[in-house]
């Protein structure tokens, strides 16, 4: 920032106010847990920011019989608490309650987690992928709805002219699970994440985070499991399929090399299926 220039800080109380600031070039400030680390990475803080935490509509979780709406400014802790006990959302709850550490979870938001596009180890991405979530954006041209897969792929460009406002989830899951593998018990970013869900048609959805730069569905494994008999929902069998259909290119990072991330996927699938079988929906 040039000397003498005062930083512009808008705590928007409506979405319109936020969009106005955004049009002026303000960067979106959610919980701050990502942006506030930028100076340490040699990136200056933006000259103008707009904070979303005062917009009521973005700070609540609405749970309806057939769907759930999550505001982008909802924190991990609030999300985990709100969906705790809601059948089918075990995986999303585990993601919200297992990410980072408790202090960060009280601050970091759903929107922030999804918009940190250089953060491959985000827990919510694979968890929302298996929910087949819809991301609602407010763009300069108006609202826009987008599937989570497409959003994750294109968010780099999408976010130049938009704010993530809400996440919409159908309540069509009977069970889900979220298995993360940090190198310690917890506290470091997982080197691999496997999220799994079973929908009302007993079809299994599987997504993988942190292994590649962007989380994605494991379509090859889903198809293999769908082709098999219903007994395919067996931990060992699922791990066997995972080994056979492992089409991931592990990314090399400071904490782990790509081969390791790739290699641990079958055992994580095994754990995930075991966790699924323990849920109320499948037990």
């Amino acid at each position: 920032m040039a000397p003498g220039v005062e930083r512009s800080f808008t705590a928007a109380s409506t979405l319109e106010e936020a969009m106005a600031a955004r049009r002026q070039g303000a960067a979106v400030l959610a919980g701050g847990t990502c942006m506030m680390r930028d100076p340490r990475r040699g990136i200056d803080l933006p000259e103008a920011v707009v904070a979303l935490h005062r917009i009521p509509a973005l700070s609540k979780v609405e749970i309806e019989p057939d769907h759930v709406v999550i505001g982008a400014a909802v924190t991990h802790v609030v999300l985990g608490r709100a969906l705790h006990g809601a059948a089918g959302f075990e995986g999303l709850v585990a993601a919200a309650q297992g990410a980072a550490n408790p202090g960060i979870r009280r601050v970091a938001t759903v929107g922030g987690n999804l918009c940190a596009f250089d953060f491959a180890a985000a827990d919510l991405s694979p968890a929302l992928l298996v929910c087949e979530a819809t991301v609602e954006l407010e763009t300069f041209k108006g609202p826009k709805l987008l599937g989570i897969s497409d959003f994750l792929k294109d968010r780099h460009t999408l976010l130049t002219e938009a704010i993530v406002t809400r996440i919409h989830l159908r309540r069509d899951l009977i069970a889900s699970a979220h298995i993360r593998l940090p190198l310690r018990k917890a506290g470091d970013y997982p080197v691999a994440i496997v999220s799994l869900a079973v929908d009302k048609d007993k079809r299994c959805r599987i997504a993988v985070g942190s292994v590649e730069p962007v989380a994605r569905r494991w379509t090859a494994l889903e198809q293999a499991m769908a082709a098999g008999p219903p007994s395919a929902l067996d931990p060992e069998r699922a791990a066997g399929f995972a080994l056979e259909h492992n089409d991931f290119q592990g990314r090399d990072g400071r904490e782990a090399e790509g081969w390791y991330r790739r290699q641990v996927l079958p055992p994580l699938v095994k754990r995930g299926v075991a966790a699924l079988l323990k849920t109320e929906g499948l037990a």
């Binding site: 190198l183 018990k185 506290g187 400071r254």
Partner: peptide
Amino acid sequence: LHEEVTLTADGRIAQDDFETYRLPLAQD
């Protein structure tokens, strides 16, 4: 078990923060 220091090709200590230098936590 956890604390790893490696040197980059240009001679830096690669783990210069608490994200990558893994100190034991209570659960460890």
